[in-house]
């Protein structure tokens, strides 16, 4: 199988990369981190193709799409790259929000429509979008991150019928906290890292969900429970999130 992964150098993207390459699949890895890509190249040699691209840069994103068109079509496209911005809404500069919405919302939409719309994904193939558990709970202290992940969830749902018509499957993943540098940077002070899901475990959940052609994945017990509670009592859930996150936020990070 041929798999495309964005944000492949660190965290979940890296775990997916290692797992799929370990299972003998060919991976096209996208990231803005040149050194990280060079390291992947060194480890995996001709099993991997790495492309450096900053997905917050519109010209680079469109160039990337053109470049990918010269490759054979993919079987799985995993649109994983994402960033966050945490702190009081008003304390974070506007340009950080623009960058966040470009990477988290605009880029996956452009890549999904661009790849699926020009037959660059094989029939029977899949696109995976990484939303967030904040879709179920709200996320005071990261309202624009929450916006970006809600948008991508609705987009995934909206393109599902059109994709089904051309034989493509859509998976949306709603992960809670994962034990990555990303979580470490943005978690409130004193949060217990051992309670976060290991990226390898999440990657395995995602691979299973893709194989089973599931539509939605709330990985793990906490995510499943939060989803139900968020549906039953959305406002109570957001208020609880304010207590456990917003009121404990340390430094503003973006």
């Amino acid at each position: 199988m041929r798999v495309l992964i964005t944000g492949a150098v660190e965290g979940l993207g890296r775990a997916l990369c290692d797992q799929l390459l370990g299972n003998g699949h060919f991976v096209t890895a996208i990231d803005y981190n040149n050194e990280g890509l060079a390291e992947l190249d060194q480890i995996w040699g001709d099993k991997i193709s790495t492309i450096a691209a900053d997905l917050s840069d519109r010209a680079e994103l469109l160039n990337l799409l053109e470049k990918l068109k010269t490759d054979p079509p993919f079987d799985w496209v995993i649109l994983n790259a994402g960033i966050s911005a945490t702190g009081r809404f008003e304390d974070i500069p506007a340009n950080a929000y623009q960058k966040l919405l470009r990477i988290n919302t605009e880029a996956p939409m452009i890549m999904a429509a661009g790849l699926a719309g020009s037959n660059m994904i094989n029939k029977g193939g899949s696109i995976a979008f990484i939303s967030s558990l904040s879709h179920a709970t709200g996320y005071p202290g990261a309202s624009v991150y929450c916006a970006s992940k809600d948008a991508i969830s609705a987009y995934a749902k909206s393109i599902r019928p059109a994709c089904a018509k051309i034989g493509l499957h859509i998976l949306t993943v709603y992960p809670g906290p994962v034990r990555t540098n990303h979580a470490e940077r943005h978690a409130p002070k004193g949060a217990d890292a051992s309670k976060r899901m290991a990226p390898e475990v999440l990657a395995a959940h995602i691979v299973t969900a893709l194989k089973g052609k599931k539509c939605r994945l709330y990985p793990g017990g906490v995510a499943k429970l939060s989803r139900v509670l968020g549906k039953l009592a959305p406002n109570t859930m957001s208020r609880l999130m304010r207590k456990i996150i917003y009121e404990k936020l340390g430094t503003t990070r973006f």
Partner: peptide, 26 residues
Amino acid sequence: RGASNFASYAASKAGLNGFARSLREE
């Protein structure tokens, strides 16, 4: 909540919904 004829429109409005929900608490 999603609309197959208005995908990007639905996405943008879902984004606003998530934004409002979180900022309302803040």
